[in-house]
Structure formats: C-alpha cells, structure tokens
Design a protein around this nucleic acid. Structure first.
Length: 323
DNA sequence: AAGTTGAGCAACCGCAACACT
DNA sequence: CAGTGTTGCGGTTGCTCAACT
C-alpha cells in the first residue's frame, strides 16, 4: 500500500490566497488549543477549514504566527543574511533562526528580490560569493562619483568574501570597511586617499585583521563602520564562531582578536598624519592616479585582486547611483 | 487612458527527512 | 528493518500593484 494521497490534490480543497475569515478561523483554532497544533493534517477538518493541512501550516508559520516581525529588513539584518548565506548557502530555515521574527520564506524572498540582484550588480556571484570574472563587469570608474558609494554595497562585497572565513579574506572585509567612511567623509578625495593609505598600513602591518572601535579624536576620517562597531562586530564574530567552531583561546581567530587594538591604533595614527585639508589641490595631482597607486599594494592579497579590475569598482559606483 | 513590464511576495509543489508502528 | 504517515524545506509559480510607455 502506498502513501495516501495528499489532501492538496483533493479538487474540493480550496487553494490560493487566504481570506480574513479563514485566517480568523485558523488563529482561533490554534489559540483554543494553547498555540499547539497536534496534527496539521487533521487540523483543517477539526477547525472547519476547507484547506490542505500543509496550506494551514504554511499560512500559520509564514503569516499568522504572533511572533512574526513585519516591515522592511534593516541594514543589520541584510548584513547578517549575507554573512550567513556565505557560510550556509540556501539553508533558509537555518538562516531564519538567526533573525528573530523573520521566516525562512520571507528571507528567501528578500534574498531573491533584493540581495541577489544587488550582489550581481556588484559583480559578486550570489551563489559562490566570489567575484565574477572581470569581463562580466564593463563599467568605468569616475573618481568624483565615489562620494555616492553606499556602505551597504561595499559591505555586501566584504561579507560576500567571508565565505571561506580565513584570515586573509576576513582582512579584506576589514580593509574594504576602512574605505567606506572615507568615501562619505567630509574630507572628500583627500580623506579617501588618507584612508586608503591607512588601509595599506593595516595590510602591511601583518597583524590582526580584527579592528575594534577607533578613537574618535584620532580617527575623524576613519569613522567606525560596521565591523568597527563593537556590537556589530560581536554579532559578526558569533557568526564566524558558529561557522568555524574554532575561536577558543589559542586558535588563530582568538590570537587575531587580541591584536585588534594595536592594529587599529596603527592605522589611526597613520591616517591622522596623512589627511590633507579639504579642497587641497596640488598641480597635476590626480585623484584617480592616487587612488590606483594606493590600491596597488593591496592587490597582493589574493582575493583583493578584484580591486585591480577597476571595472568592478566602476560597476559598484554606477550601481550606487541607480540605488 | 489603456496596455505592458517588472518587482515583490504569498502560496503551492515536490521531495527528503523524520517519526511511528 | 521496512513500510507508511507527517512535517519541514527549498524551488518555483502566479497574483497584485505600481511604474512606465
């Protein structure tokens, strides 16, 4: 004897959008049973609904459950989704357990309609979280447009690179993060250059890849970004911990964290001595050339080679205009 | 104003995993 | 251990609505 046919195949069972009346019936029935559902299969009959049990479960878990959070996803949530997806793939239900009040279906939809497209526009493969080949990017850098680059886009790139979760890649995320504040800072291009220099200093120090909160008086130009914010970084670190299960004292992750303050202070003091005044212009000085020159040493990091292809940056910049 | 297109999202479907006997 | 029933997950579809032509 085979499996009994699913009630969903019953021609008499209603399909499609739920009415308010049906919602009310389902909610009241579940409430009446103390929020417990013994058998979804038997629920429609006992509740008096002409629906498949599967449909009832879906409606309840994705829409009617009282603990569901409504409204747009916050930047924080988006970052977390990207980071978790980099490590877990399309495990929507697992990802959903890390976002309170969000359902797997909602996250999946948000990924497919927002994040996935955003990553593709940035030249990042949403499946592998790796940089797509340069020939798939074909836009041109405009140095003056840098000021419009949104943090979210850069963060997405950085988070996307976290999939392998090795120190080099994580460091890249940090470096990118250091670039972000400069782009939006009041120092204009000079600030950007200073921050690129600071980022280079960080890279060359071969120390920790984990920045901490930066001292404000030293770091007006390197404002704390996502990973520089302790609470956000803590969250990031938890994710990493869950994915690597290897952050106990004595491990590389732990050792790296210990060096965080030192590294950030190095970058901070470096930057504070290299910030030119606003509006500073010097003869044939070319922001684009400076930009390229400062990026050059960073390209030695394996995955930062994506920066070498300015088409990648160009694409981000153009996309940032569109958003 | 009417038609077309695309984004967003709720819901469906099939399958796999788990539970039970 | 095998067979059967149930639940949950992930991919996909199709509806709605707003923007655009």
């Amino acid at each position: 004897m085979g499996r009994s046919p699913c009630c969903c195949r019953d021609a008499d069972v209603k399909k499609g959008p739920w009415t308010e009346e049906e919602d009310k019936t389902l909610v009241e029935h579940i409430k009446k049973h103390g929020g417990k559902v013994g058998s979804w299969r038997g629920l429609p009959k006992s509740a008096g609904l002409n629906r498949c049990g599967k449909s009832c479960r879906l409606r309840w878990t994705n829409y009617l459950r009282p603990d569901i959070k409504r409204g747009n996803f916050t930047d924080e949530e988006e970052r977390l989704i990207i980071t978790l997806h980099a490590g877990l793939g399309n495990k929507w239900s697992t990802i959903a357990t890390h976002l309170e009040g969000r359902t797997d279906n909602e996250i999946k939809n948000y990924w497919n309609t927002h994040i996935r497209k955003k990553l593709l526009r940035m030249g990042v493969d949403p499946v592998t979280h790796q940089q797509l080949p340069p020939d798939q990017s074909h836009r041109h850098l405009n140095a003056t447009s840098i000021a419009h680059l949104p943090e979210a886009l850069l963060w997405a790139t950085a988070a996307a690179s976290l999939s392998s979760l090795d120190t080099g890649v994580l460091m890249q995320a940090q470096l990118l993060q250091q670039l972000i504040p400069a782009i939006g800072s009041n120092y204009g291009t000079s600030g950007l250059i200073a921050n690129l220099a600071a980022a280079n200093a960080m890279q060359n120090s071969s120390g920790s890849m984990v920045p901490n909160l930066l001292l404000e008086d030293q770091m007006n130009c390197l404002q704390p970004g996502y990973l520089c914010n302790t609470s956000n970084f803590a969250e990031q670190h938890v994710v990493q911990e869950q994915l690597t299960n290897d952050t106990s004292p004595g491990t590389s992750s732990f050792a790296a964290a210990e060096q965080a303050d030192e590294l950030c202070n190095t970058a901070a003091s470096f930057a504070s001595h290299h910030v030119a005044p606003v509006g500073d212009s010097a003869g044939d000085w070319s922001p684009a050339q400076e930009f390229a020159g400062l990026l050059e040493p960073m390209m030695e990091l394996p995955d930062l080679r994506s920066l070498e292809s300015d088409s990648f940056w160009k694409e981000i910049l153009e996309d940032s205009y569109r958003l």
